[in-house]
């Protein structure tokens, strides 16, 4: 029997009797990272990275959380489990599962470029690799983070020159943390939507250091926001909530912004292809580094990506999961 099986509740290790990122409540869930499509409510116990725990508590409430450090192995019913940095967001981990010399790695979501805050992606050798494929097409090749930051900074300066506020749409857990430092190099007049602010608070209480930001006060007079940067989650885009920042321009940080049509469709002023997922080359390099003889491809462009791997001589199959909502531009991408 395969060490990890694909069941209707999620990825399941029968010998260890635990699930990885299950989408139904289970007894024991090992969690790659704190995004809501991977860490779901209702399981009896959770095992995750130390940095992930406070985020899970914030999102899912009190519960039974155990934590591990990266590279620190634990045995679950005789199956060896360890976490390894995935570089996706703070605390995000690949999950290595070993039994009788058979090693499987579940990537969760990952990116190969070191963003300086999420931990550098660690290639882990294995027999079977289960990889995401959110951006598994060769049109997705990211610019370097430092260059995108310059684009964002220039855009903010342009906004200020037009006397407009700069509203940046960025996922509250992940991109918001990445862009805060470069924004702070341009201005200290930074305000965040409650959802974004809450995550910063949680991370700050866990000991992470970030520049100071203000929580947006619904009752504050409009005049309070002038030549300001507003960080808001995707749910706030094009909402009445944003009206109070008029005049403003909207910039969106998302890998989907790589394609012009997506920028235009959203009727925004600027799109920055800043992603917390690996790009095409990142995925290929990561897979090669695992030296895996079999690769399962989950959420994203799984059918194209796994076909390509097969044609390249890497045995591969696509797997349907409930992560990343098919090909939607989900939050967090």
């Amino acid at each position: 029997m395969a060490l990890i099986q694909f069941t209707d509740k999620g990825l399941y290790c029968a010998e260890g009797n635990f699930y990885i990122d299950p989408w139904q409540p289970v007894d024991k869930a090992v969690i790659t990272h704190a995004h809501s499509d991977h860490a779901r409510w209702g399981s009896k116990s959770y095992l995750c990275h130390t940095f992930t725990k406070p985020l899970l508590q914030q999102r899912l409430g009190d519960g039974n959380y155990e934590t591990l450090e990266w590279g620190q192995p634990v045995f679950i019913n005789g199956v060896k489990v360890s976490l390894h940095p995935a570089g996706h967001i703070i605390g995000s981990s690949q999950i290595r599962v070993e039994r009788n010399g058979d090693v499987w790695v579940v990537s969760g979501d990952y990116k190969t470029e070191n963003d300086g805050i999420s931990g550098e992606f660690e290639p882990v050798k294995c027999n079977t690799f289960i990889t995401e494929s959110t951006f598994g097409l060769p049109i997705y090749n990211w610019k370097k983070q430092a260059d995108i930051f310059i684009d964002i900074q220039n855009w903010i300066k342009d906004c200020f020159e037009k006397n407009a506020n700069a509203v940046i749409i960025a996922y509250s857990l992940g991109k918001a943390q990445r862009i805060i430092a470069p924004i702070a190099e341009v201005t200290s007049n930074i305000h965040a939507h409650g959802a974004v602010w809450n995550i910063f608070q949680t991370l700050k209480s866990s000991g992470f250091k970030f520049p100071d930001i203000n929580r947006i006060d619904i009752d504050a007079p409009k005049e309070k926001y002038k030549n300001a940067v507003i960080i808001a989650p995707p749910s706030a885009e094009a909402s009445l909530w944003m009206r109070r920042f008029t005049p403003f321009e909207v910039g969106v940080c998302s890998g989907w912004m790589q394609v012009r049509g997506n920028v235009r469709r959203r009727n925004i002023d600027a799109g920055f292809a800043l992603s917390d997922h690996a790009d095409w080359n990142g995925l290929l390099q990561a897979i090669e580094a695992t030296e895996a003889s079999k690769v399962f491809v989950t959420h994203g462009f799984q059918s194209a990506f796994s076909r390509y791997l097969n044609e390249k001589g890497i045995e591969s199959a696509e797997v349907k999961t409930e992560y990343g909502n098919d090909e939607d531009a989900v939050e967090g991408n």
Binding site: L137, P138, I139, V259, R260, F301, A304, Y308
Partner: peptide, 11 residues
């Protein structure tokens, strides 16, 4: 694969 990309980009 080019065809897949084209479908996604639309141009």
């Amino acid at each position: 694969l080019f065809a897949e990309c084209y479908l996604t980009v639309g141009d």
